[in-house]
Design a protein around this nucleic acid. Structure first.
Lengths: 103, 103
DNA sequence: CGGGATCCGTCCGGATACTG
DNA sequence: CAGTATCCGGACGGATCCCG
């Protein structure tokens, strides 16, 4: 469980879904640097864990939407808190790195 | 920054330091499954980022203590919250996995 | 005791090509 | 559009040996 939470892309995907349902191509555009393979793989994992729901609309071409489940939403305050901490302290951390690397 | 937070061992090491300073061998015993290489590497990274302070006591044999810096401690509520969420919802997640795998 | 250095297998993840 | 399949290099991380 902790391993899934510590996946590099999970936080990004979850954040991408925070404000409502998103289509696959929508997500892939919003998440910079993610490959199609990793995005699909991450979504599959989150779906398996019950954090994300996948909805297929059988039109032509097919349309697929992803959205957070209630369980997934219950995780969002924590994800947001982490993002907030990171943004608030990134400069302190980078200063510490410079000091460390100088020695 | 997010990448460092998403490191597999970081959460474990941080948790291991939550209740005060620990010696190296102490940490390695408390964190199940961590190799000496990974423990050292993780501690170095956290020290570099200013989250952990390393103190060497030049006795024979040498004694090394690790402890959270104020910056590191400011991260602990988030780590604890994540651990709490994981423990509270692990069974729901595992049930979702079984359902998913059955299909 | 607290590591550093090295070797080496495994798996992560990107690139590419193809499909309903 | 939303994937699946395959190939493949490189990073991750364990095991082992050595040292002050």
């Amino acid at each position: 469980m902790l391993e899934r939470l510590s996946d590099k892309w999970v936080t990004l995907v979850l954040t991408g879904l925070a404000s409502g349902p998103r289509r696959y191509s929508d997500l892939s555009r919003r998440i910079a640097g993610v490959s199609q393979k990793m995005l699909t793989q991450t979504l599959r994992g989150l779906e398996r864990d019950g954090l994300v729901r996948r909805t297929v609309t059988p039109s032509v071409p097919v349309r697929v939407d992803y959205e957070l489940t209630p369980l997934g939403e219950s995780l969002m305050p924590l994800v947001a808190a982490i993002k907030g901490w990171a943004e608030a302290n990134i400069q302190t951390v980078e200063a510490a790195r410079k000091t460390y690397d100088a020695a």
